[in-house]
Amino acid sequence: MAALEPGRATVPSPSRRRFEDRSVIVTGAASGIGRETAVRFGREGALVTVADIDEEGARQTVEAIKAGGGVARARRTDVSDPEAVRAMVDGAAEAYGGPHVLHNNAYWAPLGRPVADTTLPEWHRTIDTTLMSVFLGCKYAIPRMVAEGGGVIVNTASTAGLVASPSFAAYMAAKGGVLALTRSIAFDYGKQGIRCNAVAPGLIRTPATDPVFRDQDRLDFLTGKLLLGHAGEPKDIAEAVLYLAGDESRFMTGQTLVVDGGRLIA
């Protein structure tokens, strides 16, 4: 997807969907935010590669996209494995071209672990799945995007990369890294037609965050800071991702779009 020419319309015509025929990769797309985002990309005409280590969940996401008239394929991917991520990108390019959009969304993190209580395996798994996966996705997708004249990367960060939360050391470190990497990519590749932004969700109700909702002390801490009075839903983040990935945000790069119900200003 080449960079838009000055003066080109930023709003799609009524007869054309926003991501018509664009090759889009979504990682962590077997459930939650990733699934909702992948389904919405499909609804907007994208050719979606649904990537997740949960192969059955990925297939269910593909079925949901196809049920809505979209086009999608599932790809089992361990996002911490360089060869698996390379194959994910190459497979998407072979099937659909591009990729034109990469949404790095996968993560893993232990809950209730301050630094001294975080085990080395927990630390490494969090960094590998949550931060290195973003590096790997960008490393392999960017050369293909540049060769096609440009592309868009949207990374899922978190408010945990911006403000403190109790006993969440590895996750906070990883998401802080995602924010810094987003800015670095935007700086280095902007003149080659690459836009890179991040979305920072606050408290969102998904299968992955179920442990948070079952931890009453943590839930009370978080909900007490939500000015809108309730947790968000995957659709709230999906809409932000599609905005960042679309032509409507064509003059935006290196930024973090916070979607948190007012958490950061409370």
Rank of each mutant, 00 (worst) to 15 (best):
G190Y: 12
L257Q: 07
G32P: 13
E44D: 05
D217G: 12
D236Q: 08
M252W: 11
L181I: 08
V85A: 03
T61R: 10
N105I: 00
T129N: 08
A200G: 10
P201L: 12
L228Q: 13
Q216P: 05
E63N: 08
A245K: 07
V24F: 04
A106F: 09
L136H: 05
E36W: 03
E56H: 08
G68H: 03
A198H: 07
E94A: 15
G176A: 05
F213L: 10
D21P: 01
E148I: 01
T130F: 09
E36T: 15
R76D: 07
G224W: 05
A174E: 10
V101L: 06
G34A: 12
N197Q: 10
I265N: 03
A174Y: 08
P234V: 09
D117F: 03
T253A: 12
E94Q: 15
I204V: 15
V154R: 07
R35K: 11
A174T: 10
M145F: 05
I53P: 07
I185E: 01
V89S: 01
D54E: 09
F221P: 11
P207N: 00
F187W: 15
I142L: 02
K139N: 05
R125Q: 06
E63P: 00
R16V: 15
P121A: 00
L120Y: 11
K235Y: 01
P14W: 08
E148G: 14
P234M: 09
T27R: 10
Q192D: 14
V62Y: 10
V178G: 06
S133N: 12
A198E: 09
C138F: 08
L181H: 06
G254F: 11
I194F: 05
S165N: 03
I53C: 08
D247G: 02
F187C: 08
G32E: 11
H124C: 02
A180W: 02
Y140V: 05
F251P: 07
Q60C: 09
F187Q: 14
M88P: 04
A67I: 02
Q60T: 07
M172Y: 01
A164L: 09
T119Y: 10
W108D: 05
T159L: 15
D81R: 09
G161M: 03
R59A: 14
D210Q: 10
G68L: 05
T209P: 01
V163L: 11
G149V: 06
Q255C: 05
E55N: 00
G137R: 06
G91P: 13
S133V: 14
I237H: 11
A141R: 03
G261Q: 13
C138M: 13
L203M: 06
G246Q: 07
R195M: 08
T49S: 09
V11G: 04
A198T: 11
H230Q: 12
L162K: 14
P234I: 14
Y171A: 09
S165A: 04
P6H: 04
S167M: 03
D217C: 02
T129E: 04
P114F: 03
S133W: 13
G161I: 02
V258S: 07
K175F: 13
P99Q: 01
G137N: 04
D210C: 00
A180H: 06
R17Y: 00
A64I: 00
W123K: 10
R205D: 13
L120Q: 14
A51H: 02
D117E: 15
H230N: 10
A173P: 06
L219E: 01
A109D: 03
Q192L: 13
A116S: 11
L181C: 07
A29T: 03
E239P: 01
G34I: 13
I33Y: 11
